Simulated assay, not measured.
Amino acid sequence: MKATRQQAVTGLSLYDRTAEDAAAAVISRYSTSFGLACRMLGARPRPHVRNVYALARVADEVVDGPAQEAGLSPHETAAVLDQLERECFAAIDRGFSTNLVLHAFARTARECGIGADLITPFFASMRADLEVTSHDAASHDEYVYGSAEVIGLMCLQVFVNAGSRHPVDPAPRLVDGARRLGAAFQDVNFLRDLDDDRSRLGRDYLGLSTPAGDRAAVLDRIDADLGAAAAVIPELPADCRRAVTAAHDLFAELARRLRASEGGPKRVRVPDTVKARLAARAMLGFAPKEVRA
Rank of each mutant, 00 (worst) to 15 (best):
A212E: 15
I222R: 01
G264A: 12
D239P: 08
V232H: 10
T210K: 13
D220I: 11
A224I: 05
G207T: 09
R269P: 00
A279Y: 05
R267E: 08
Y205D: 04
R203G: 04
L250G: 02
T245S: 13
L201A: 13
A212L: 02
P234D: 09
K275P: 07
A243M: 02
V232Q: 01
R203T: 03
V244S: 04
S261E: 14
A279V: 05
A280E: 12
L258D: 04
S261I: 01
L250S: 02
T273C: 08
D220A: 15
A243Y: 00
P234T: 04
L201C: 09
A229C: 09
R215Q: 09
R215A: 15
G207W: 10
S199E: 15
D214W: 10
A216Y: 03
G213Q: 08
L236E: 06
P265Q: 07
R198D: 12
E262K: 15
A280N: 09
V274E: 14
L191I: 08
R277G: 14
A255K: 13
A231Y: 04
L194S: 01
L208P: 05
V270N: 08
H248N: 11
D214I: 07
R215G: 09
D239R: 09
I222Q: 00
A255F: 03
V218T: 13
D196A: 15
N189W: 04
G207V: 13
V188F: 11
R192W: 04
E262P: 00
D193Y: 03
T273I: 13
A230D: 03
A276I: 01
D239F: 07
R221N: 00
D187N: 08
L254A: 07
V188T: 13
D220G: 08
A216L: 06
A216N: 07
D195Q: 11
D196N: 12
P265T: 04
G227Q: 06
P211L: 10
D204C: 04
L201R: 14
D272L: 15
K275A: 04
A255V: 02
A228S: 15
R198Y: 09
D197L: 12
A224G: 14
P271Q: 10
R259E: 02
N189D: 14
D223H: 15
A280K: 12
R277P: 00
A260P: 01
V188W: 06
K275L: 11
K275F: 10
A231N: 06
N189Y: 03
